[in-house]
Amino acid sequence: MLSFILRRILIAIPTILLISVFVFSLQKLLPGDPVLAMAGEERDPEVIAFLREKYRLNDPIPVQYAHWVGNAVRGDLGMSLRTNQPVLELIGEKLPVTIQLATMAMIFAMGIGIPAGILSAVRKGTVTDYVANVVALSGLSIPNFWLGIMLILLVSVKWQLLPASGYVPFADDPWRSVQVMLMPAFVLGTALAATLMRHTRSAMLTVLTSDYVRTARAKGLSERRVILKHAFRNALTPIVTLSALLFGELIAGAVLTEQIFTIPGFGKLVVDAVFNRDYAVVQGIVLVTAVGFIVMNLLADVAYVLLNPRLRSQT
């Protein structure tokens, strides 16, 4: 197992290096000279020369890249132009907020998507199956920022049941924190629920026609036991791995959800950085998200092997 994990880490290294090349070259896409922008209106030649030296802009591009990637490996992703804080520190501050939102969204997604997928597969071809599929497809087609706006309109403005925006740290007031996050988490979880439902349905349909399920039925086990104990447990493997792979969608969805509900998380940091032209932060976010996605992929692979006894014995 350890050698399998090490092998996967080794495979991930060139991918991470390529991502770093891409993120670094994003800066080179910028029109104009960034030093001129930093030097202010006076554009003092001495200041310009100092800044060029400071940011090593006189070096050839491969040397600049090596320097940048060397710093990134040591956890130095540069400084935010707006807050003058290290980028990694800024990301570290905002990440727990998004992790709370993402966790709650995932609970919603699994709570809705998995039972709906099981029900849809068990009742294949019936009205339940049809309705579940229509709802899932609608969930995939609704832009989550619009769903958020509509929920604010109904739940907060009309019925005044939940707050429309804001954030309370979980450590300060757990109940209030969950209450404030309920609506954004539901919005973020909807599209994921639809994806999970479709995959659960497909995995269950495959498993339900297998020999061991037929045997379990032949043994006279109750249908509930056959579905939950025999079929679902075996269908769980692809579902668990898919859940890990939904990380990317969660982070991307969080950008818009946090914007609508004014949640000071990772997603809002991206948008604020974009509008403040805080490019070091944008670069840092893309790099951290991509590395996070690779780590989640790795965990998904490990989970897949751990959940599948046949693969476990091969590694």
């Binding site: 800066q27 910028l30 990317g248 950008v255 974009v274 976010i285 893309v286 998200t289 991509a290 996605f293």
Partner: peptide, 15 residues
């Protein structure tokens, strides 16, 4: 590896 929308936002921001 970079989420679709994050990548699109980053590119749109730089462009």
């Amino acid at each position: 590896a970079a989420p679709f929308l994050i990548l699109a936002i980053a590119l749109a921001a730089f462009l």
